[in-house]
Deep mutational scan, measured.
Amino acid sequence: MFKRLMMVALLVIAPLSAATAADQTNPYKLMDEAAQKTFDRLKNEQPQIRANPDYLRTIVDQELLPYVQVKYAGALVLGQYYKSATPAQREAYFAAFREYLKQAYGQALAMYHGQTYQIAPEQPLGDKTIVPIRVTIIDPNGRPPVRLDFQWRKNSQTGNWQAYDMIAEGVSMITTKQNEWGTLLRTKGIDGLTAQLKSISQQKITLEEKK
Rank of each mutant, 00 (worst) to 15 (best):
T194I: 03
V68S: 11
I13V: 02
R134M: 00
L30D: 14
Y81I: 04
A104N: 01
K188F: 05
A108S: 08
N155M: 05
M6W: 10
A75N: 04
R90A: 13
V68E: 10
T175R: 02
I205E: 08
T175E: 14
P27Q: 09
P47L: 10
R143G: 07
L16H: 05
T136Y: 12
Y93L: 06
K204W: 11
L76D: 14
P15C: 14
N44I: 14
M173T: 08
Q80A: 11
N141C: 14
A96C: 15
Q115V: 07
H113W: 13
I59V: 11
Y55H: 02
I205M: 01
W161D: 05
P132N: 10
M166L: 07
A95R: 13
A108W: 10
V68L: 04
E63M: 12
K210S: 13
A75C: 08
A22D: 06
S199C: 12
Y82L: 02
P121F: 08
P132F: 03
L56G: 04
Y117L: 10
I133S: 03
L65I: 15
K83V: 01
P53H: 00
V146N: 13
F150W: 12
L184P: 12
Q89I: 07
L101N: 01
T20F: 06
N141P: 08
I13H: 01
Y117M: 07
K210G: 09
L76A: 14
F97C: 01
K29W: 05
L185P: 06
L207E: 14
A96Q: 12
T176E: 13
T20Q: 13
I190A: 02
Y67G: 03
P132W: 03
G114T: 11
I137R: 05
N52K: 01
K154S: 09
P140Q: 13
A85T: 00
A120N: 01
V77C: 11
T176N: 14
N160Q: 13
I133P: 07
A104Y: 14
K198E: 12
P132V: 12
G189E: 05
G182N: 01
A19G: 05
G74Q: 13
V131D: 05
I167H: 13
Y100T: 15
R41Y: 10
F94L: 07
D23R: 00
G170N: 07
M1V: 02
K188C: 06
Y81M: 01
Y67F: 12
S199W: 13
R50H: 01
L30V: 05
T176Y: 13
Q178S: 15
S172F: 02
S201K: 08
P27A: 11
Q203Y: 11
K188Y: 05
I49S: 05
K188I: 13
T206F: 07
A85P: 03
G192D: 12
L11Y: 10
K29Y: 09
Q202C: 10
I137F: 01
T86V: 03
T206W: 08
T116R: 09
S199I: 15
Q48A: 06
T20V: 03
F2W: 05
R57T: 11
L10N: 00
L207I: 00
T20E: 15
Q46Y: 01
A35H: 04
A51M: 01
M173W: 13
A22G: 11
P121W: 06
T129W: 05
E208W: 09
Y117N: 10
P87V: 10
Q115G: 10
V77P: 11
L148S: 13
L64G: 10
F94N: 01
N155V: 03
N179I: 01
L185C: 05
A163R: 05
Y164F: 06
T206S: 07
A195Y: 06
P66M: 13
G189L: 06
T183A: 03
M7W: 08
K177Q: 03
S17R: 02
L78R: 04
G159C: 12
R143H: 04
K204I: 08
K71W: 09
M173F: 15
D139H: 05
Q118K: 12
L42F: 06
A85E: 10
I138M: 06
P27F: 13
D61N: 12
Y105R: 03
L78F: 09
L148M: 07
Q157L: 06
Y72V: 13
K177R: 10
A88M: 04
V171S: 14
A21P: 13
M173N: 12
T58Y: 10
T183L: 10
T136C: 11
M1T: 10
D32A: 04
P47A: 08
V60D: 14
Y82G: 10
E91R: 02
F2G: 05
Y105E: 14
G170Y: 01
Q202P: 12
K102I: 03
N141F: 11
N52V: 05
I130T: 04
D149F: 00
A92V: 12
Y93H: 08
L76G: 11
P144M: 13
Q196G: 06
A104T: 15
N52Y: 07
T158L: 10
I59K: 14
I137T: 15
T20D: 14
A18S: 02
T20M: 14
Q196L: 15
M166D: 11
A95D: 07
M6L: 09
A120K: 12
T25L: 10
S199H: 05
R143E: 13
A34L: 13
L197Y: 13
Q89G: 13
V12W: 12
I119A: 05
R153A: 03
T20K: 15
A104G: 09
V60S: 08
I59N: 00
L78S: 02
T58V: 00
P121T: 10
G79K: 02
N155G: 06
T58N: 03
A110V: 05
N52L: 06
Q48K: 14
A163S: 09
K83E: 09
T194W: 11
L78P: 08
A9P: 05
G79T: 08
A120H: 06
V77K: 13
F39Y: 08
T176S: 09
T86G: 12
Q162N: 07
K198V: 15
K43A: 03
L76C: 13
V135K: 00
L65R: 06
D54M: 03
P145K: 06
G114C: 08
R90M: 15
I133V: 14
Y93E: 06
G79P: 07
L109Y: 00
P53R: 09
E180T: 08
F94Q: 08
V8R: 04
A9R: 02
T136M: 15
G126S: 14
M111C: 08
S172P: 10
L207M: 06
M111F: 11
V135M: 08
R186D: 06
L30K: 02
T38M: 05
E63F: 03
E208Y: 15
Q123C: 12
R134Q: 14
N52F: 01
K154L: 04
A104Q: 00
I59E: 01
R153N: 03
Q89T: 10
A19S: 10
Y112R: 06
W181T: 15
H113F: 04
M31D: 02
V135L: 10
A195L: 08
E45Q: 15
G106P: 08
G114R: 12
K83Y: 06
E33L: 09
V70D: 14
